[in-house]
Nucleic acid binder design. Structure first.
Lengths: 250, 250
DNA sequence: CGCAGACATAACGTATACAATAACCGACAG
DNA sequence: CTGTCGGTTATTGTATACGTTATGTCTGCG
């Protein structure tokens, strides 16, 4: 999915405006696709934390100019997936220990609270969809496709949050899940994914039976178990530590 | 509105304003200052919802080229303060009824929960600072400077969230407060500001005495009273409503 | 032989130029 | 008089070019 995925701007001729009542916001031509590709690559750990993302290289790969790449990079930076250093370019964010703690604290607070609303609003189709996602995730895990599993797990949690009907909070959770994927990459043990057990299936069961409170409690345990499975140690190598170490004023 | 000095980031130096084309010795871009100016103007309702933000006009006003303006606009768009319509440019977001509901629901969930952590971590200096902010807000209200009061109110809530120590959630609350300011502009009664009473002072008292739970409950009442003071009615004029009205499938 | 300073290179930041598209207005026909 | 079609204009989207800065290397001097 990387590389291709941009519509060719060949003269389509009779592309009249049938968009009076058609597309939602399909204005972004190929930039959204590029964003998705890069985002997926980061979430799937194909781009590891600390990897440098040169604008020229990305522009070359995706066949657009640096202008578009900069837009994508900026969006990723606002979502905290990449870090933009003033004169040094972009790199995949390496979450700090504090960031990791904050992210999981936020998830604990928001995702659990959202379960009650989700339980009230969930439909049969939603349950079907969620079971499908969970099954795909399990399959990926069995096939040792950790990258895919991580992405699917994040998508599952994001989908869950969407059920609440609150788009604002759902978007926030989606961001948190993406960042969690980065945290997994840095502080997680290789070969030991967070959502390894059948927690997601259990979660679906609770929601399907309308047990919102129980689902929230279960989600709390689920997230705590993920967090505790991480080995959050202070990293010896942190670039801006120098000032701290030597107590130099800025 | 041009040339309003903002707080300088601690990262590297300070930049007064965007200088004319030529040597920018500051190196670091002054785009953050432009962002702050536009953001403040929106939050203070000097730019009202629906107002169009032409790139050329902004570029001319701030003395930079459209490139920088686009970056600022995009950031504002990701924070939902401006809406970017594909070929029509940027305009100040006019929050829908659903958005307003979502935002206040999110604030209710997050801000209240954060009060407990804030009560545990608050320091004397924080209390001093908060009282100062609340006093400024009251002064602005007495002087009928609604614009300033609205901005200060949003800043107060954002500052409160910062006390929790969770930067991720604090940033989220800050966004929600900015959006709330927009909601106030659309659905609030003129001459009747949300945080009119002395709720903020009471909130500080509760936090200063370590009553986190009480503070959370008070915050809940506070936010609900703001929300209920709004007149959230269905807007008769919503561009995409046509599909809804005529039940045209997409 | 080691360090320091300068130069070259490469990557980012900004501006400008070009192209595409949608809105607006005028003209013409029914 | 009205509706529709075509042209014009204005504004955004994209690309490219240029300037700035940081980094790495090379050379000269101690």
């Amino acid at each position: 999915m990387s590389g291709s995925g941009q519509m060719a701007e060949s003269t389509s001729g009779d592309q009249k405006q049938a968009s009076v009542s058609g597309g939602k916001k399909s204005g972004d031509k190929g930039l959204d696709a590029i964003y998705q590709s890069v985002s997926d690559a980061i979430i799937e750990h194909r781009l590891k934390p600390g990897a440098r993302l040169r604008e020229d290289a990305l522009a070359d790969v995706f066949g657009v100019s640096r202008t578009g790449i900069r837009k994508v990079l900026q969006r990723l930076a606002l979502e905290q997936l990449v870090t933009l250093t003033p004169r040094r370019g972009a790199s995949v964010t390496r979450p700090s220990v504090d960031e990791a703690k904050d992210v999981f604290e936020a998830r604990l607070l928001v995702e659990c609270a959202l379960m009650e609303a989700a339980a009230k609003r969930i439909t049969e189709a939603d349950v079907e969809d969620l079971r499908n996602m969970a099954s795909q995730e399990q399959k990926a895990l069995r096939n040792r496709e950790q990258q895919t599993a991580i992405k699917l797990s994040a998508a599952f949690h994001a989908r869950l949050a969407e059920l609440s009907g609150n788009r604002t909070l759902a978007g926030f959770v989606s961001q948190l899940c993406s960042r969690s994927s980065l945290i997994l990459a840095v502080y997680g043990h290789s070969g030991h994914l967070g959502c390894e057990s059948h927690d997601h299936e259990n979660l679906i069961d609770l929601l399907a039976t309308g047990e919102g409170v129980r689902a929230g409690e279960f989600m709390a345990r689920h997230l705590k178990s993920i967090e505790s499975s991480l080995s959050i140690f202070e990293e010896p190598e942190e670039t801006p530590d120098l000032r701290d170490i030597f107590a130099l004023n800025d």
